[in-house]
Design a protein around this nucleic acid. Structure first.
Length: 441
RNA sequence: GGCGCAUUCGUCUAGUGGCUAGGACACAGCCCUCUCAAGGCUGGUGCACGGGUUCGAUCCCCGUAUGCGCUGCCA
């Protein structure tokens, strides 16, 4: 039926992958996969052809991390290369000549400009609908420059030429290009080329309504990689920005999203990036990690946070991390959540001290200490039994023992299950820490 | 300024010419419970404004406002 779907993501190598760019790449990728088409990566390095590979590395890394593999482009090649604009000069020269021969180009102070036909151009956008642009007024729509005096090319021209040359069937890009589209259409027509389908997707904004820019924390995919986010969570969250399955599904595998994604269910209005929701979604994915996977990722997170885990046996590490599984949403929360396992020098939170190291609690902590010292099997169930027995004896709720004990041993009011954490830590350390707390005052 | 696009809870969104306008995140309360999470239950907040069209508009039309984008020899 329809001819081959070919879409592309065409970032310029700036040294990082913008979250909005990642979302554009994702939509292109999803569209390609949905229609069994090709997803092309093209590096638009017209200006700075210096450290392209280096700067582009962040883009490759980000796309790989998100699971967005390309069928044509850097490293994988393809029939329509090269995939760096800096290497396509002869192609642009050829198209320029064609334009010149047809009388569409004039010179202006050394720069080359395209003479607009001065007509109305109707953009038929798959997302935004039919839009009529009036380009008849040179005052408001000047003839676009296509080549600078120094010989370098302007985006509009090379972008269109490459899309023609690479046989791109659908141009799916950010809405910031919607107003540029009529100009591009003029170029297609002047070159006698068949128009692709256009689809402009809504922009992603900051909380305050501003465009996310590289100075904003979280505007770079790298930010999420470094913090230990799950790529499937970021990918899933991004898919929900400007697109909806139109039912109440939110957490979806990439397979499901690919199956139901299409341009007709892309939303038209701008979306605000909500870190809270990503945080939640990441937790959803983190909770379904297998024990081993959680362990590997946990170790990596602790290491990169500088937690000294070297001297500890793997069994201890595994047991410690196991008590954190299901409790954290993002791996960068891990160091503060379970750092107490790896240092005897726990610092008590001031609020905790005020609330739990009270005059009436200290004798209770003492009682806990004595009972724990007498325990033969220092495991979670024995510990639970012991704590509950003491509570009964003292006529208090277990909470009255749990809180001060937790604070004494971990320094915090929140953390893994107390009984399990005590078991992992082991009797000697637990007793030592309680003793230290008892002498705290 | 000109041109373009947009406007449903704080946020992401569903939705229809007549519904108690639905879900999710966040928030609050309750339950569960060794804390925190998770899970369960409950709750509050929304159709930007003004005109039409219509028996009836959140939905259709026109304005206004606001936001965003484009208006480069940036991409």
């Amino acid at each position: 039926m329809s001819s081959a779907v070919r879409v592309r993501f065409a970032p310029s190598p700036t040294g990082y992958l913008h979250i909005g760019g990642a979302r554009t790449a994702l939509f292109n990728w999803l569209f390609a996969r949905h229609h069994a088409g090709k997803f092309i990566l093209r590096v638009e390095d017209t200006d700075k052809s210096r450290n392209t590979e280096e700067a582009a590395a962040a883009i490759y890394d980000g796309l790989h991390w998100l699971g967005l593999s390309w069928d044509e482009g850097p490293h994988v090649g393809g029939d329509f290369g090269p995939y760096f604009q800096s290497e396509r000069d002869s192609i642009y020269e050829k198209y320029l000549r064609q334009l010149q021969d047809a009388g569409h180009v004039f010179e202006d102070n050394g720069a080359l400009r395209f003479r607009s036909p001065r007509e109305h151009v109707i953009v038929e956008d798959l997302v935004c609908g039919k839009i009529d642009f009036d380009l008849t007024n040179p005052g408001t729509h000047p003839d676009m420059t296509i080549r600078r005096p120094d010989g370098s090319w302007i985006f509009h021209f090379v972008n269109v030429v490459d899309d023609i040359e690479m046989k791109v069937s659908h141009v799916i890009r950010g809405e910031d290009h919607l107003s540029n589209t009529p100009k591009h259409i003029e170029l297609y027509r002047a070159l006698g080329a068949k128009l692709p389908f256009f689809a402009h997707i809504p922009l992603i904004m900051n909380k305050d309504g501003s465009k996310m820019s590289k100075r904003d924390q979280g505007a770079s995919v790298d930010f999420y990689i470094k913090r230990g986010y799950r790529p499937e969570a970021v990918r899933n969250y991004l898919s929900l920005l400007g697109w909806s399955p139109k039912d109440n599904r939110e957490k979806m595998t990439i397979e499901v999203t690919t199956k139901i994604f299409d341009l007709n269910n892309v939303v038209r209005s701008h979306a605000t990036f909500d870190p809270e929701k990503l945080h939640w979604l990441n937790g959803e994915y983190a909770r379904e990690l297998g024990d081993n996977e959680f362990y590997e990722l946990g170790v990596a997170a602790l290491k990169s946070a500088g937690v000294k885990i070297e001297g500890f046996p793997e069994g201890f590490l595994r047991a410690a991390l196991q008590t954190c599984k299901g409790k954290i949403n993002i791996f960068d929360e891990l160091p503060s959540y379970c750092g107490f396992y790896f240092t005897d020098d726990v610092t008590y939170t001031p609020e905790g001290v005020a609330k739990h190291f009270t005059a009436e609690n200290m004798p209770r902590l003492r009682a806990v200490r004595d009972a724990l010292a007498a325990l033969q099997n220092f495991d979670a169930s024995e510990l639970e039994t012991a704590l509950k027995a003491i509570a009964t004896n003292l006529g208090v709720k277990v909470g009255a023992l749990v809180h001060p004990t937790r604070l004494a041993v971990t320094g915090s009011n929140v953390g893994p299950s107390l009984y399990h954490l005590l078991e992992v830590l082991g009797q000697p350390k637990v007793l030592a820490r309680i003793d230290r707390a008892l002498s705290h005052q």
